[in-house]
């Protein structure tokens, strides 16, 4: 057992970080804030060229041939700089859709659970070429369906919470799409959950780093505010949240990647492999959502009044964390799911 990153994984991390710094830094992305199409074509091409969308595709089919362990590392790096656009959904769909692996943007939409009252909000409606509809969580049998963009009927949300996540309200009844034969909805959902959780860990980490840097430089009462225990303790707790969430997310990714590990752990816990997979994935997303939201709140608090301004980017981390925590299961829903599995 060696749960540290391998040299290849570190290289991948460094490589993606360099690509993002070059083409998709937060400063660059902020130029597209609030647009209906937040995807910067140059940045998107850089992701495609870096192999982000072909990550899970076998090398024999022209992809990079890696697993979710590498996927979460990439997602984490993207979370640190809040890469805009339908990148996680396109990544999650790449193993089953040729178009997605070629970098053609796709959305992923969960059919609301029975009795749900929230409107059917779809992200990046103007940027996606097609939308894949996942059946509700309680339905593990039905395969996902693909709806071409031209068949979608939606109205634009005028003021989306996150200026990097434009939204449309899908009009009901939803169009009947083409069934993606042979695709496992649970597997697709788990992949999306883990990648989302990875992105959240990136957000949580960036918030600690940026708030720490600010606390070192900002002086009040004649000394850096980071020398006050009140600030130190906020940041220490934030670091604990992101490190704990990171551990859970990496473990979930490896558990989905490696059937030997999954079988062994399921055996230890006395449950089925399927139950174990849901448990680790749901648990990882609970902690990652919590870390991202709470650390973003902490980062705003540490920035004081400036943290409440639009100019300082901390609100963008908080808003994206909120968007992601509402997709593929909220913390409450996932806690219910874990409880039902034990």
């Amino acid at each position: 057992m060696d749960f540290e990153l391998s040299q290849d994984q570190r290289d991948l991390q460094d490589g993606i970080r360099a690509v993002l710094e070059g083409s998709l830094s937060l400063e660059t992305s902020r130029g597209r804030e609030g647009r209906d199409d937040v995807v910067d074509p140059k940045g998107w091409t850089a992701l495609l060229d870096a192999g982000v969308f072909g990550l899970f595709v076998p090398e024999s089919e022209g992809g990079v041939g890696l697993g979710l362990a590498e996927g979460v590392l990439v997602a984490e790096e993207m979370g640190r700089v809040l890469v805009p656009g339908p990148v996680l959904s396109t990544m999650a769909l790449a193993p089953i859709l040729d178009a997605a692996r070629d970098g053609i943007a796709h959305g992923l939409f969960e059919a609301p659970a029975r009795g749900a009252t929230a409107p059917g909000l779809v992200e990046h409606p103007d940027s996606i070429h097609a939308l894949v509809l996942l059946p509700p969580l309680e339905d593990p049998v039905t395969e996902p369906t693909l709806i071409e963009h031209g068949d979608l009927r939606y109205s634009q949300v005028l003021e989306p919470l996150d200026p990097f996540t434009p939204l449309g309200v899908l009009q009901e009844p939803y169009p009947v799409g083409v069934s993606l034969e042979g695709t496992s909805s649970p597997q697709l959902r788990q992949r999306a959950m883990v990648l989302t959780a990875g992105f959240q860990v990136g957000i949580a980490t960036a918030c600690v780093e940026q708030a720490t840097a600010y606390a070192k430089g900002r002086e009040q009462f004649g000394r850096p505010i980071g020398s006050f225990q009140a600030i130190k303790h906020l940041l220490a707790d934030a670091l604990c949240r992101s490190e704990l969430a990171r551990s859970a997310v990496y473990a979930a990714a490896v558990t989905l990647d490696d059937p030997v590990v999954a079988t062994r752990e399921a055996d230890t816990l006395g449950c089925s492999v399927t139950q174990l997979q849901w448990r680790v994935v749901a648990g990882a997303k609970i902690l990652a959502d919590e870390a991202a939201i709470t650390n973003a709140r902490t980062a705003i608090q540490v920035h004081g009044g400036m943290g409440f301004t639009w100019e300082v980017p901390m609100h963008l981390f908080l808003k994206r964390a909120r968007v992601l925590s509402s997709t593929f299961g909220t913390r409450s829903q996932l806690a219910d799911m874990v409880a039902a599995l034990i």
Binding site: F3, L244, S247, Y250, A282, G283, S332, M337, A339, A340
Partner: peptide
Amino acid sequence: RRRVGTLTASFDALWALTKR
């Protein structure tokens, strides 16, 4: 149930952190 679910997730994460 929700508290049990959240604690399960936290302890699983601590076990993963231990392995790290």
